[in-house]
Simulated scan of single mutants.
Amino acid sequence: MKIIVISGSAHADGASTYLADRFVAGAHVAGQQVDRYNVVDHQTNFVMVAENEDPIPQDDDCAQLLTKVTQADLVVLVTPVYYYAMSSLLKTVVDRFYDINTTLKGMDKQIMMLATAYDPDEHVFDSMKINYRQLANYLGWHDAGTVWDHGALTHPAIDRYGQQAYDLGAQLKD
């Protein structure tokens, strides 16, 4: 199974990176091939659309990511929550899916979401869960699992969410 993990956090050692690391460790134990793409390490321009609704090509690093997304069996989105939504870094990448929208829609892919929030209230994810479901449904991809880590780094349960991420990776089969 080919997996692309797209991390949309600006914090190199933050809770989102921790969940991504744990997922990747589990996936490696399961013998899976994992590519990582940390958005903050690449230039990703906003999606641009012409009046006829065709995407306008961008001179940035996103083309290589979109190729990996197309080739992947599983796309894992990893993000902290900012104002009840995914980070702008990750949202910019997801918006760039529009560049290859007709290719991606209906592909037999799986998708996962690993999200962290400093806020201890689990309702901090409510709107993000709706957006995630809508994205998966729109693309026709299969939800392969989620981790919603509320209260990230503020409680000892961080290891519980890290274990959930690890288990999601470890249970993957070709």
Rank of each mutant, 00 (worst) to 15 (best):
Thr79Ile: 06
Asp126Ser: 10
Ile130Val: 15
Thr44Ser: 14
Val78Asn: 01
Asp54Glu: 15
Asp95Ser: 08
Gln171His: 14
Asn52His: 09
Val93Pro: 05
Met112Arg: 03
Gln43Tyr: 00
Leu114Lys: 11
Ile158Pro: 00
Ala25Ser: 14
Lys68Phe: 03
Leu168Ser: 02
Asp108Ser: 14
Ala157Lys: 11
Trp141Ser: 10
Ala72Thr: 11
Val40Lys: 08
Tyr161Pro: 02
Met107Asn: 10
Tyr161His: 15
Asp61Phe: 04
Asp159His: 09
Ser88Ala: 15
Met128Tyr: 02
Leu104Thr: 02
Val40Gly: 05
Arg96Thr: 08
Ser127Trp: 10
Asn45Glu: 11
Met112Pro: 03
Lys2His: 00
Ala10Thr: 10
Val47Ala: 04
Ser16Asn: 00
Arg96Asp: 11
Val24His: 03
Leu135Ile: 09
Arg160Gln: 14
Pro80Leu: 07
Arg160His: 12
Asp143Phe: 02
Gly140Asn: 03
Cys62Trp: 02
Leu65Trp: 00
Ala12Gly: 13
Thr146Ser: 15
Cys62Ala: 08
Asp99Lys: 08
Tyr37Thr: 01
Ala15Phe: 09
Val47Pro: 05
Tyr161Gln: 04
Tyr84Asp: 15
Gly14Asp: 01
Ala20Tyr: 04
His28Tyr: 12
Gly8Lys: 04
Gln134Glu: 14
Gly26Asn: 02
Gln64Tyr: 07
Thr44Cys: 15
Ile111Thr: 04
Phe46Gly: 06
Val76Ser: 02
Lys109Met: 04
Thr154Asn: 12
Leu139Ser: 00
Asp167Lys: 05
Gln64Ala: 14
Gly106Arg: 07
Tyr132Met: 05
Gln58Trp: 05
Leu168Lys: 04
Asn131Phe: 12
Ala10Gln: 07
Asp13Tyr: 12
Arg133Thr: 06
Ile130Met: 15
Glu53Phe: 14
Asp61Tyr: 00
Gly140Glu: 04
Ala27Phe: 10
Glu53Cys: 10
Leu114Trp: 06
Leu74His: 14
Ala157Val: 06
Pro80Ile: 10
Val24Arg: 01
Thr103His: 07
Asp13Arg: 08
Arg96Val: 11
Val24Met: 04
Gln164Thr: 03
Tyr118Met: 13
Gly140Asp: 09
Phe125Pro: 07
Gln58Leu: 14
Gly31Phe: 03
Asn52Trp: 04
Tyr132Ile: 07
Asn101Met: 15
Thr102Arg: 15
Tyr84Cys: 12
Tyr83Glu: 10
Asp174His: 09
Val75Gly: 00
Trp148Asp: 00
Gln43Ala: 01
Lys109Trp: 06
His123Asn: 15
Leu139Trp: 12
Asp149His: 13
Glu122Leu: 12
Tyr118Leu: 10
Gly151Trp: 07
Ile158Leu: 12
Ser88His: 13
Pro156Val: 07
Ile4Val: 14
Leu19Pro: 00
Leu66Trp: 12
Pro120His: 00
Val39Tyr: 03
Ala63Ser: 06
Thr92Trp: 08
Ala15Trp: 06
Ala10Arg: 11
Ala50Lys: 11
Tyr98Lys: 09
Gly162Arg: 00
Ala15Tyr: 01
Lys173Ile: 13
Ala72Pro: 11
Leu168Gln: 00
Val49His: 04
Met128Val: 09
Leu153Asp: 15
Arg22Val: 05
Tyr132Gln: 05
Tyr98Val: 05
His150Lys: 05
Cys62Tyr: 03
Asp121His: 13
Leu74Tyr: 08
